[in-house]
Design a protein around this nucleic acid. Structure first.
Lengths: 299, 299
DNA sequence: TGGAATTATACTCAAGTTGAGTATAACAAG
DNA sequence: CTTGTTATACTCAACTTGAGTATAATTCCA
């Protein structure tokens, strides 16, 4: 391209969009504004040394928690602003839930936007949605195969990472209100909340990325308190993955990975046998090169 | 941030940077300009519907090959341009090698820039570099542990995905010429080619991403001719991963995944028994949801 | 005070996957 | 027709995974 420069540089506006995730009460939640209708976003401000620090500072003001983990998701160009093109850079950040500082900000379960992604109780699909989907695919073998590959059925198994592909299939099938922008949106058979512009698409990207990441990098711990029980760890993983896990196997793996260590203390006051409290062995981040420390979703 | 808008939007310039990869003669190569000193890059042009299409069109002009695969790598803000901040968006693209259209463009082995990343013949480390590294870590347990985790040794095993972390460690150890920008660069003990600004860092990111990706998505086939032998497939994987693989196990896996099918034809004229020619079963892209089709690096 | 309910933790076992090695087949060259 | 070279097929032990069962330590409640 440097070879082929025929036009001058184009001047663009840059916007940062954040998907800030926390897990509370077994529910993966996302910080939203405008009554759950949009993700927090804002312009790139001058004076920040990098994109991440700007985002990080803002998020920490919001949540009063240090943000352990920030990851860039995707950058895309906005079409519609006529001459001046807009660039949006989206981020995934992990934190723990705190009362939002601004009244219009609130935490929402991400399964409000993607109810079909919660498979912790077997196949709790929105039945109407599935019917609409199969209607769309009637008589079309390729469409039926795609549905099976993404949503399971016909011998195919559910893959929790395909969040974005499932959303895009629903879009294609006309079941996503955002697809029909300036029409008066008819009642759709998909009982999911919609969002501004492509914000729900960005959220789907974030969920997919996080579901993939927790398997090979120990990022879950950013979402937990300093001390936690193995059940809390498991339930946090299950909340993110949208699938329930086999308890004995989960424990076997955690212990095998040597990712956590006992604090010596136990829970009290709850029903049942007290659970040992663990903490994350932060030293593994140095020991292992970050990759390879897999936290697999043993179903 | 929308909550906290105190300053006006900042106006920025946007640049696209491409890491275009091909594998030729068991060598993973990258398209460069300026005699191997820089990655091709150029401004975002108006009139392109999206960032990817702009990049794709440009790359196809360069290589005269359809680009099967383009993936966004990372977006970062340039510090140094005073008031007007620059945004750079980097991409990874896969193709097959063709004579570069512009005289200043040329294909270079990526191992020229990262010789230590080629582990196909056991531990062919630049010996001087390793000596400098251990000197830097003398008497520092944490540094020694990091080196072992990234470069192997002390019972730790080489992980081919940690390309960026290894480069950053070398940077930290002062073994990267780019780190000392405007100094007259002294002869360094690392016998690797350097690059403009952070282009080598971008290249490291691209290599790491590709090495991770080939394990769970069938992107290798973008780098192969339409018909290929299993040995060619294996050698392409080995070139990318920088590691040699166990032939029988590699074949077992390929066949188990049902990613390829026989064309019915065989090679001729070469030494040894003729090999069957295979083609990629493109239909798997629809069948499986893209993830889960792992092509693991069975060592 | 003593089950019953509840949660934690420890152990077992078959099936599947992986790492490594060996044997045989089909061609070209001399 | 023998040797070198590459392709392809098969074997086997070690390890990992998926699924299940047994036992321990609490709280709750009659």
């Amino acid at each position: 391209m440097r070879e082929n420069r025929s036009m001058g540089n184009q001047v663009v506006e840059t916007e940062l969009i954040a998907v800030l995730v926390a897990v509370t009460d077994g529910d993966p939640r996302v910080l939203t504004i405008e009554n759950g209708y949009a993700l927090p976003s804002g312009p790139l401000e001058p004076g920040h040394p990098s994109l991440q620090t700007g985002l990080r500072a803002w998020v920490e003001r919001q949540t009063h928690h240090p943000i352990g983990y920030v990851e860039q998701l995707y950058t895309f160009a906005d079409q519609q602003r006529g001459e001046a093109r807009g660039i949006s850079i989206s981020y995934l950040a992990l934190s723990r839930e705190a009362a939002a500082e601004y009244p219009s900000a609130s935490w929402r379960s991400w399964y409000h936007y993607f109810p079909w992604e919660d498979q912790r109780e077997d196949n709790k699909f929105p039945a109407d949605m599935y019917r609409s989907l199969t209607g769309w695919a009637a008589g079309d073998v390729a469409r039926r195969a795609r549905i099976a590959g993404l949503f399971g059925g016909e011998g195919r198994v559910w893959n929790e990472e395909l969040v974005l592909q499932r959303y895009e299939l629903l879009w294609e099938a006309g079941l996503v209100p955002e697809a029909t922008r300036n029409a008066l949106v008819a009642a759709t058979p998909v009982p999911a909340k919609e969002m501004l512009n492509d914000h729900r698409r960005i959220l789907a990207t974030a969920i997919a990325r996080l579901r993939a990441k927790i398997k090979y990098r120990p990022v879950v711990f950013e979402l937990l308190a300093h001390e936690f029980t193995l059940l809390e760890l498991q339930q946090t993983m299950e909340a993110l993955a949208g699938q329930s896990l086999h308890k004995p196997n989960f424990r076997r793996f955690i212990e095998g990975q040597e990712l956590v260590e006992e604090t010596g203390r136990t829970t009290t006051g709850l029903a049942g046998r007290p659970a040992k409290l663990f903490r994350f062995r932060a030293s593994v981040l140095e020991e292992r090169g970050f990759t390879g420390s897999k936290l697999p979703l043993v179903r």
